[in-house]
Every structure is written in C-alpha cells, then in structure tokens.
Design a binder for these strands. Structure first.
Lengths: 191, 191
DNA sequence: TTGCGAAATCCTAACGGTTAGGCCTATCTT
DNA sequence: AAGATAGGCCTAACCGTTAGGATTTCGCAA
C-alpha cells in the first residue's frame, strides 16, 4: 500500500501532507471557523482546487487519519487469531483507539472538534461509515454465524462505545463499562 | 403547547407549514439537489431570509417533525406508568416510530433521504441529539438508578435500533431483534 | 381607538465552501 | 523521443447561509 514507486506518487503524497499539516496548524492557531479554505490553500502554496482534489471537504482536513481508524477496527476482527473470541478483541482495539484520541497531544484537536458543530457532525457521519465497515467484517467472519442484524447492531454499539468514551471524564472506564453491556448483548444473540 | 391564541402565532405557523409543504413537494418532484433554497422561497412566496427564520438549514426542511420524534421518545420514558419496566416501554415506542417512518406514504421521502449524502448526514446528527435527550431522561428516572454511562449507552443503542430498522428489509423484526440485545445489555448494568 | 413595542417579514449584499471547465506541465510508458 | 495521463492551476461561478437594516403586522394597554 505504502510503496513510493514513482516520483509522481511521492509528490502527490507530499502535497497532500503539506495541505493537511498547514490546515491543522492554522486551525489550531486561529480557530477552525476563522480559517477559510482560501487561507489554507494560500499558506500551503497550492490552488483551492488542489485542496479539494485531495480532501473531499473542509472538515476532512481535520480527520486525515480516517482510513487508518477504519482499518484498525476491521483488522481487529479479521486478523485476530482463529478461535479467539470476538468481544475481547474488539474491546481491546476500541480501548487502544480511545487512548490514542485522548492522549496528551490530542487535547487541542479534540477541543477544536467539540467546539465546532460542523466537525462534530462530520465525525459522527464518519463513525457511521466505520460502523458499516465493521458490520461487514463481522458478517464475513465464518466463526461467528450471527444474523446480519446482530452484526450491524454490535458494530454500531462498538462505535457508540468509542464515541461515548472520547467525551467521558474517565474514557477507559467508560469503554470497559459499555463493553460489559455489549458482551451481554452479543451473547444474547447466540444461535 | 398547540394553542393558537393569537393571529400572529397562527400566521407564523401557517407560513412555516407552507414553506415545509412547498419544499417537500418540490424536492419530491424535481429532486433534493435540483431544488435550491431560492426556488423554495419563490414558490412559497416568501423571502429567503424567512425560510431560514423558520428552518435552520435546507436539510431541516425535510425533517420537519424532528421535535415530535424527540418528545415521543423521551415521553415514552418519563410518562410511563410507575414501576413499569423501562425496556418494554422503549421497545414499544421505537416500534411505533419505525412503523411511522416505514409506512406506505413515507417511501418516497425515505428514498430521497437515502439518495442524498447531506440528508443522511443530517439525519444521523439529529439522531444523536435525540439520543442525548433520551439519555437525560433515563438519568433523571429515579427508579432506574444506573450510571450515566449506562444511560447514555442505552440511549444510543435504542437510537441505533431505530436507524437500523428504518433501513432493514423487515423493520419490525429488526427492532425486536435489536431490543433483545438491548435488554440483555441493560440488565448487565443492574446495580 | 389609538399609539407603541415587539415580532415577523423583507431586501440587498455579501461570505465561504464547493465545483465546472479548460489549460499547462511534469511524469510515466512505450 | 512522443504520446498519454495525472496532478496541478486559474477563473468564474453556484448555492447555502448570514448580516444589516428597513418595513409591515399584530398584540396590548392607555
């Protein structure tokens, strides 16, 4: 995936990164709403159209790692050792993701997101996509054999756990508590 | 609540309704994206600013009953007979709401929503607000005495049930199945 | 009834995210 | 080396949304 085979791809990746870095820096310094796309483009020394060639929207500039997040979630399910029970694996990964997003350095970004309705809304719809990807991974696991509905519900519950924990006073304890609920819910769907 | 005491309030409500009706009619006839706010305003014979005086955004025109939905949910909790268990009451109300939104006449609207990313995203963020309101209602119930986390998680799970059911092949069965999971999750949080 | 304050509506102009269309140039392929 | 393609640029516009301020309409009390 990360093969910088040609110069073209390397340059493209560099441009993308420069835009994302510039945007985040400006957003944190002056506030998300106070910085326009035109500002970001100027500071990154690219055209406005180039920004949108790399990012689908202004909000997407803030959630650059979107893809990683989704991959980590689904891989926690698909790449786990055979016969390892689902819920603990999911629990562990969500816990790790929550730690990542409540880490020291992430606080200003988190504050910025919570301070902007547009960013909150975007994050939520992102989470929904992640839940759908996770539901697909669950449905594809031959060891689980649960209904599509059970998979979809469990996927959403797991995402709920993440979302609640990121905003909770004690994130890790929140993940644990919600996953106790998810475990019971999951077991109630046993065939 | 619905007391049309004065002419002013009646006229305001009428204007609001005329805008909402006009908007929905145009959206269904020509497509959500193909109709601009300026079109809606012109057809409803009001100024653009008046549209935004009644609705916070273009998407909000489609979800006119937003408030009702939230009230029905929270009241299913707060207004239930004393000592009636929570989960069945919630289950019943969500079932009713799902029936409402999968009813015969709602199909074209549903199709329109699913066809527009902006509307899907808006609906999702609306649901989130409803979940928060429901969480508050749960936390306020003296008979329940669960942690704030358990209340928030259960509220989101219930909203998940609604969202999943609205898009499922068999909506009612989906509500039942997800509520079996929610019941187990809720009971796992008993003090 | 009249007159006043508040609420609802209007108009205009703009702002800011986003996109279309067309062009240019660096890179890749053969 | 030549053509094909992708990344980037510029300009101009579209559309949702808002600010600012004028104007009308209604409710209420003198």
């Amino acid at each position: 995936m990360t093969e910088p085979s040609g110069r073209r791809e390397r340059k493209k990746a560099a441009t993308r990164q420069k835009i994302a870095d510039t945007a985040l820096r400006l957003f944190l310094k002056r506030g998300y709403d106070a910085v326009g796309i035109r500002d970001v483009a100027a500071e990154a020394d690219v055209a406005v159209t180039t920004v949108f060639a790399h990012f689908a929207s202004k909000e997407a500039l803030v959630f650059e790692r979107d893809q990683d997040f989704e991959q980590r979630l689904t891989r926690a399910v698909t790449d786990r050792p055979p016969l390892e029970p689902l819920i603990p694996a999911l629990h562990r990964e969500v816990q790790a993701l929550v730690r990542h997003c409540t880490a020291e350095g992430s606080a200003p970004v988190r504050r910025m997101i919570e301070g902007s309705p547009a960013l909150r809304e975007y994050e939520e719809s992102m989470s929904l996509r992640h839940a759908q990807a996770l539901a697909v991974a669950l449905a594809a696991d031959p060891h689980l054999s649960r209904s599509a509905t059970a998979c979809r519900a469990t996927a959403r519950f797991a995402i709920d756990a993440y979302a609640l924990a990121c905003r909770a006073d004690d994130p890790e304890a929140t993940v644990d508590e919600v996953f106790r609920m998810i475990k019971a819910a999951w077991e109630a769907t046993a065939p």
